[in-house]
Nucleic acid binder design. Structure first.
Ligand SMILES: [Mn+2]
Ligand SMILES: [Mn+2]
Ligand SMILES: [Zn+2]
Ligand SMILES: [Zn+2]
Lengths: 145, 145
DNA sequence: TTGTAATTGAAAAATATTATCATTTAATAA
DNA sequence: TTATTAAATGATAATATTTTTCAATTACAA
């Protein structure tokens, strides 16, 4: 079982959030499938059983669950955000989550990992994304929490 | 000089695209700064000098330039897409660009790189994103190009 | 120069996300 | 249990973002 209701409740409460029925349902819905789902897809599933839960609540819940690491946010090309349960001269990026500053870095080679994954999964890998998110020096001073 | 107009023109034409004034301007605008810019920000800059270039053209141009690797698309948390010149138990993802299938993988450790980057840049790194994009086995057979 | 497929811009449409605010509710402690 | 209260919800509206449409224009190969 990849999903523990008790754990979700505990972690939410530990961070000062309430464990509401809505949050339980959204979490369960995401846990009920291997797929990654867009907010709209999650809302649709949730809405079938619980037509009274609003889309906005889904968005709010996803934000919180992702922030707490209870679900995993991923970037899927076109439709930017989806969620799944948490269980040239190429360069990569370091991005400040506060001011948006971007620092490039290079010299980190992922080709060995890429090859390993290709063999293990049969994927034909075309691209990758490696980004670090954090606070730049300037923003570390400004930001309270 | 990080930007070569001739190279842009050549690569566009090599792929059957025309090298239009609009595409030149968008490329130049992106190349003119170290920042990463949202489509809206790019449009705004472009629009100052060339008020006749439409927002839609900016979007279309960004798609093409990114696809050809002439600019680099990045995922910046909140506001999903920006562009810059191209020069639980934690796990990561392998995503099929055709059907959206997601395969998790784990056991790849980025902590050493993270530490190195922290030291070099002064960033306080909070998170990272590592994703491989490609075609799953099933889709490799289906997809023509 | 000509022909033609690609591209463009304006507008509208479709999507996606966030803000507001009156009402309800989970959690704490009397 | 009950009362209290800050947090959460849902309906709606407001924004923001992206895509579609289509007639007019244009790059560029022939
Ligand atoms: Mn890059
Ligand atoms: Mn992950
Ligand atoms: Zn910063
Ligand atoms: Zn696939």
């Amino acid at each position: 079982m990849r999903f523990s209701e008790k754990k979700t409740a505990t972690i939410l409460r530990q961070h000062g959030y309430k464990f509401t029925p809505q949050r339980r349902v959204v979490t369960q819905t995401i846990a009920s499938t291997q797929d990654h789902l867009t907010p709209a897809a999650i809302y649709e599933k949730v809405h079938q059983e619980h037509p009274n839960i609003g889309l906005v609540t889904v968005y709010r819940t996803l934000d919180i669950l992702a922030k707490l690491g209870l679900i995993c946010e991923l970037h899927a090309g076109g439709s930017c955000h989806s969620y799944t349960t948490s269980a040239s001269e190429h360069h990569h990026h370091l991005i400040c989550s506060n001011c948006g500053k971007v620092v490039d870095f290079s010299g980190y080679d992922l080709s060995e990992l890429k090859q390993r994954l290709s063999l293990e999964t049969g994927f034909e890998i075309e691209d990758h994304l490696l980004e670090f998110i954090g606070l730049c020096q300037a923003c570390q001073k400004e930001v309270i929490r």
